[in-house]
Amino acid sequence: MSLAATDLGVALGQRTVLAGVTLALRPGEVTAVLGPNGAGKSTLLRALAGLLPPHQGTVILDGTALGGFDGPDRARAIGFLPQHRTIHWPMTVEHTVALGRVPHGDRSPQAIERAMAEMDVTQFRDRPVTELSGGELARVLMARVLAQDTPILLADEPTAGLDPAHQLALLDCLAARAKAGKTVVVALHDLSLAARYGQRIVLLQAGRITADGVPDAVLTAALLKSTFGIDAQLVHVEGMAVVLPRRVC
């Protein structure tokens, strides 16, 4: 399934948060969206998920404007993990993950078990989600998205609050889904993880795309300086990309 934004502009209240964003997402690769706080990463992901109506331009899913889909159809195509981890009732972990099956109208045990196993939350399936740590809750909510089993996955800072092992496991899982032909978009703050897992890096600044390409082309010293205001360099250690931040400019 293809998802593309053309000349996308989004305003929240009076403030223009995104302007002139054109981006065609490709199945089979992980796209990492990077940018400083307030650059519009979350707004871009929410607009791509169809949760914010664009005031300019369009988001096209498989040739049709996203606004033309009804809720469940869109929900079977796009899975979205919001940045804010909201939980209102102390439901069990399993029940929470199973919500991912709502758009499908089933409670497919395979999809739920697989998602729980991938996010390593099976062992506390019967615990209330309100009694989990922040990182554990984040994994449960990600498992909800995985259980939705959509061809397009959008995750807003999925690794925030996770320990190093679970950060790697989560991104390995998303990379595997991309390899299996899904379209994966993650908003990240960890530049090294973005360089390692993203086949494509989209750099956002003040609501506009300032760079778009492979990590080596985007994460240059000049762009890192102009975008994030840091003196940093992309280096390769044991064949893996690492962004080494030296100091604030």
Binding site: R46, D70, R74, F80, T86, H88, V102, P103
Partner: peptide, 20 residues
């Protein structure tokens, strides 16, 4: 029933799950 269950993870998740 399903809409209310979906809402328990917040408006954005509910909307992503297809709730109007």
């Amino acid at each position: 029933q399903r809409d209310l269950d979906s809402l328990s993870l917040g408006d954005d998740v509910a909307a992503n799950l297809g709730v109007d």
